[in-house]
Design a protein around this nucleic acid. Sequence first.
DNA 1: GCTTGCAATGTAAACGTTTACACATGCGAG
DNA 2: CTCGCATGTGTAAACGTTTACATTGCAAGC
Lengths: 329, 329
Amino acid sequence: MAKIRDVAEAAGVSTATVSRVLTNKPHVRPEVKKKVLEVVEALGYRPNRVAQNLRSNSSKIIALIISDIENPFFQRVSRAVDDTVHDLGYSVMLCNTDENPEKERLSLNLLRDENIAGVILAPTRQTIDTFSKSTVEIPMVIIDRHVTNINVDNVMIDNIQAAYSITKHLIGHGYSRIGGIFGMGSTTGRDRREGFLRALKEHALKPITELTKYAHPREEDGYTTATKLLELPEPPEAILTSNSLLAAGVMQAIRERSLRIPDDVAFATFDDTTWAKLMVPPLTVVDQPTYEIGRTAAELLIKRIQDPSRSYREVILNTRLILRHSCGC
Amino acid sequence: MAKIRDVAEAAGVSTATVSRVLTNKPHVRPEVKKKVLEVVEALGYRPNRVAQNLRSNSSKIIALIISDIENPFFQRVSRAVDDTVHDLGYSVMLCNTDENPEKERLSLNLLRDENIAGVILAPTRQTIDTFSKSTVEIPMVIIDRHVTNINVDNVMIDNIQAAYSITKHLIGHGYSRIGGIFGMGSTTGRDRREGFLRALKEHALKPITELTKYAHPREEDGYTTATKLLELPEPPEAILTSNSLLAAGVMQAIRERSLRIPDDVAFATFDDTTWAKLMVPPLTVVDQPTYEIGRTAAELLIKRIQDPSRSYREVILNTRLILRHSCGC
DNA sequence: GCTTGCAATGTAAACGTTTACACATGCGAG
DNA sequence: CTCGCATGTGTAAACGTTTACATTGCAAGC
């Protein structure tokens, strides 16, 4: 594999000159530049990024640290991030944390060790708590989760508001016993629960049971929790879940009992997935601008990498309430 | 940030010795080792992986190059790969190709440039065609796609057989006009089509229309293709799709026409997703051992990285036909 | 014609490791 | 008592770049 020295010799110049043409530095005669580029082409030379990184202390890799690779929300975000940074010559390294602070710590260490250019992070609650100014040595943007103790770029949706309004909508249908199922590993789940409770409170309704469990909510958790709810002496007339994985579990539980939606139980959830509209009846959902979130985060990150001293900003993107039929509409 | 030299000085030894203890080389007195480790701990020293990589020419990053980050099949594979290699100290870099050979080429270049340890690849047909012995300088395992022109580890399912048997099943229900929708960007789609056609041929049935289009099949493509099929003067009595994205599109098309499944059209697809069992009626599917595929591929890759001269193997994993009700059962 | 200054290029140090080689020490075998 | 060998440790080169600094040549200003 050709090295810069080979190119230099073949072109009859020094390595410094080769480097200069390859990094588009000034002060090199056009004819020399041309010659060098020809040799580069002829030899199929490609700069060794590892050496570049070591010497110049800058890499072209960014990390995306998320809590669940199997959550459609994060998949769509990943896609957006990937699309956006690739166009700028960066690559993305994906780290899955399973909402596990230890795994997350490992991933963050990795960034340091590999000299990663920057990171897009959906931090666990524990990590947020231990964040301090010193933690942020590396360009970082936080997504999906709320963080107040450090200065950092942040892109989110207004979870409280979104949960509040979908709950209001359910209340509007006349349901008074409403159950909520939220993941408690993240601030996201907590915020949504807060919006949910707030809406109920306004109408002097008590949450039939304040269902909030499981650090890392998956389909199974939705299923068992919904089962528990549906077997109460006074089961809920409506259920709200905070993500699509939980929603799938709840649907499963409802189906098993041959309950009709919305007549026996109404249902609504966060996240518009491929299949939400294909359910019978189609699901009423809070649609998050997932692609937007990923893209915005990626753009903010690249900007920060290029100018670490720029001011921090928090971007709140709008959600959209999609009314279909599972809520009673 | 502490460097190895700092550790060496603080411990009163040379950098060579520090390196030796950190890489578990022999010939270092236990007491020295202990002392060094204490200093490492005290200084919070972490080796710079970039420098390690440059000097020793070996990294701890593997790449996963897939065609569609949003396809549940690849998501599950990613998860498995991630789980598996993380336990062995590797990290994964995710590259999305959108079934686009150019993007794929860029990704493969990246591996060279970044000195990636190995790669798990689902290659496009074009790339497969241009594969040659020389292409494989880097440890590689191919998944999901068939490749014959080079020696390489390969983990797959028997697509022809799987498509054959699900088609047979549909035929068994008495349908004679059966349509198939396959993605043609990959050998996977082609193989499935072949199994499909073979089964029909055995029963002297002509595919109502041999629907095979779109290099990079997504929900939309399933929708438009199904629409076309369903509007034929003699529409199919049954439809088979080769992945879950296409399936979602087909479902959408069927729903729009208020057709009943399976009475008006029967339906079956590859890939058991979260929602397949939640459909009304639940979907009959060919379930691929996605997690297994990812895990096996990762294990093979690590083994090859550790021993590049080991013999190549092809692993064929079994699929499972899950009969639910959309086929007429 | 001599200085000044800038453009073009080369030389070599530096990035943070690993490792080949050299060296010192101690111990057992002859 | 010497030789040989294994063990423990240090010195410095090497990995492939970028870049600070030095050097050269040439044009312009006086």
